[in-house]
């Protein structure tokens, strides 16, 4: 263990090159990214993972800083995004986890993956359903976040209407199948699940060229 960790530190100290312990070819093979794109994303990962603690791992504070330009403050969306990236549930996002999660956001990723990711994002309590209380909590969060106020009456109307459309079996919660049917009817709800930037990461992070191991 110590030897591996030590080698990883050596890898960082001796050169800014891509850590040899990350299997770029496998990551590229298992994702919509080419090897050069994975290398370019490694440049982004390095930047994000050293913004507060320089340990080549993305901590929740670093994710918050990247997305909201502030390292502090609680937010249920941030918690869910972090949890979904952190596949191993060890409190940090590793490079492989970063690539896995970003793969879902690639413009060419299958829509089923985007639908599934969004469902897991909104299933705050991870019960396998999006429940009314969860939707109320998320709406309250966005209203607070954006300093918007809505009357309780209007808020309930919006949530009632949403459930009337999405909850086809009227059991008060949205199943994954209901969610799928609902977003296929309202595809703009998946807008956040696609990052056009991911089609052009080698241009966004051209410094990968100094560290590349292959020529795509």
């Amino acid at each position: 263990f110590f030897s591996t960790v030590g080698q990883c530190f050596d890898c960082r100290q001796n050169s800014p090159r891509t850590c040899q312990y990350v299997d770029l070819a496998r990551l590229a093979h298992d994702s919509p990214f080419s090897v050069n794109e994975v290398e370019a994303l490694y440049e982004l990962f390095k930047k994000l993972s050293c913004s507060i603690i320089d340990d080549m791992l993305i901590h929740k504070e670093e994710l918050r800083l990247a997305l909201f330009q502030a390292p502090y403050g609680e937010n249920i969306f941030l918690d869910r995004v972090f949890d979904l990236f952190d596949e191993k549930k060890n409190g940090v996002i590793e490079f492989e986890e970063f690539i896995h999660a970003l793969s879902v956001f690639h413009p060419n990723a299958p829509i089923e993956e985007k639908i599934d990711f969004a469902f897991r994002l909104y299933d705050l309590r991870q019960t396998g359903f999006i429940e009314r209380e969860e939707v109320q909590q998320m709406v309250a969060t966005i209203l607070m976040e954006s300093d918007m106020t809505l009357s309780d009456e209007l808020l309930n109307l919006i949530i009632d209407k949403t459930f009337a459309d999405a909850d086809s079996d009227k059991d008060g919660k949205i199943s994954k199948a209901e969610w799928k049917a609902y977003v296929l009817k309202h595809p703009s709800l998946l807008k956040n699940m696609t990052l056009p930037y991911l089609k052009d990461v080698t241009t966004a992070f051209p410094s990968f060229i100094f560290n590349t191991e292959v020529e795509d």
Binding site: L44, K47, L48, A66, L67, F68, Q69, N75, F77, L78, V81, L102, F105, L121, Y122, V135, M138, V139, T141, I142, L143, E145, S146, I158, I159, K161, T162, D165, A166, K185, H186, P187, S188, L189, K191, N192, L195, Y197, A204
Partner: peptide
Amino acid sequence: KGSDSPTIINAFQLIGMSSFLDLSGFFEQ
């Protein structure tokens, strides 16, 4: 019918406005 209409307001459209759900922040620093 069947496609998004700008007149439809639903809870998930509101929720999707959260800046924490917009991962383009990664690329805009």
